[in-house]
Amino acid sequence: MNIVEVKNLSKSFMQGDTEIKAVDNVSLEIAEGEMLAITGQSGSGKTTLLNLIGGIEEATEGEIFIDGADITLADKDELARLRRQKIGYVFQDFNLIPILTVRENIIMPLLLDSKKVGKRRFKEIAGYLGLENRLDHLPSQLSGGQKQRVAIARALINSPSIILADEPTGNLDRKMADEIMQLLIGLNEKGITILLVTHEERYANMCQRKIVMRDGKATCETTPAVPQTSQ
């Protein structure tokens, strides 16, 4: 069953009098439990495609189905609910709230959804990501790798249908980046669907499938020869 279906999706911006097509007639499908990489050079449109799927940006044309519902028809509040309940986001810049502790950052999606914190689930996630000793720290007191672990924990807390990860290794050194990739692969092995945007071939090749984007178009779709590995 497909969790995400994108049909003939386009997104244009006006730069002065010139129309820039950031995403140009892209179609793709992501099956439940799949780990898909979108790769390409800077400015190729991969982050815009991710933001369109996440309902952060509005499409100019086309349809996006998440769990069978067309989100291009949804209003702002419905999109917000979708992000709260079905999507977990992980960013290159971590996007942690600076005035909240690690614990509070992780449970923020629950607060926004007026849900209680399940202590077992919280403990399980914090333990899996190795954050037990950092829960009362502020983001400014963490390393880059730790910040990204917090972001992943936050993305997982609401048990989303899919995790959208936008260059999650972009701000990290190689060792940390490898660690984060292994965590994502591990999550995927637990059955979580992951859409990964990365410009690093090495990490794209760790996914089950990859789509290469150029000038807003999905130019080719391949299945990497190197199988994904988890530690």
Partner: peptide, 16 residues
Amino acid sequence: RKTVRTLSTLGASDKT
């Protein structure tokens, strides 16, 4: 700004 945008991304409605 960062907090506002992060909250929005996490699914907080504009009204919230």
